[in-house]
Amino acid sequence: MKKSTITAGLMALALGTAAQAEDVLRIATEGAYPPFNNVTADGELVGFDVEIAKALCAEMKRECEIVAQDWDGIIPGLVNDKYDAIVASMSITEERQQAIDFTDPYYSNYLSVVAASDTEITQDTLKDASIGAQRSTIGSQWAEDTYGSRADIRLYDTNPAAFSDLKAGRVDTVVVDFLPGAAWVGENDGFGFVGDRIDIEDKIGIGIRKGEADLAAALNAALAAIRANGTYEAISVEYFGVDIF
């Protein structure tokens, strides 16, 4: 994690860089959302999103460059043409669709509520508990929309920060996407899910700038192709043991 972010910081010292040549497809991911996208100690971006992005590029026979971008600035960066696509487990929402376009979905997402295993909180009493979530995620927006802006919702810059407060006991629950939630629960004894996963009919898509119909068509065709030839399923099984499409 650290080496890459430091190099990225130093590289940012260079003055404004213009858009790269047309043939390289620049893809942004967050790099702080295991197991979908994170950075290894060697500074390499890995995870389900990254593998899917690479598979799509191979299918389209285009050279790709994958960069890490903090979540808060990931949509503004796309709009400002810092990169051409976001493959970062981003939910397709109406609000986001006002700013950017999405491809067809590449997997289905569910929400989950994580808490200490011995908690008495249920999904019905969640409104009285403190709810942690990463700022500007589908989880925090679901909590705000369900319980209102005046519930005890604590917003963090990253998911690990929210989980760290959950572990310390400073927040009662964390609302997080189901699969990363399951990964964290698997690594931390004494924590589990509150109730079943929550289906909010959430589909994850690739974000692209508005009006880029050619790119959308190319990505959708590539997605259909890796679905059909088994590449997608192989990646999904490698990470989750099941096909999460």
């Binding site: 910081g9 010292l13 404004g16 213009a18 858009a19 400002n80 043409d81 810092k82």
Partner: peptide, 8 residues
């Protein structure tokens, strides 16, 4: 378009 202001 496609310019960015580096964070620094």
């Amino acid at each position: 378009a496609g310019y960015e202001v580096p964070k620094f």
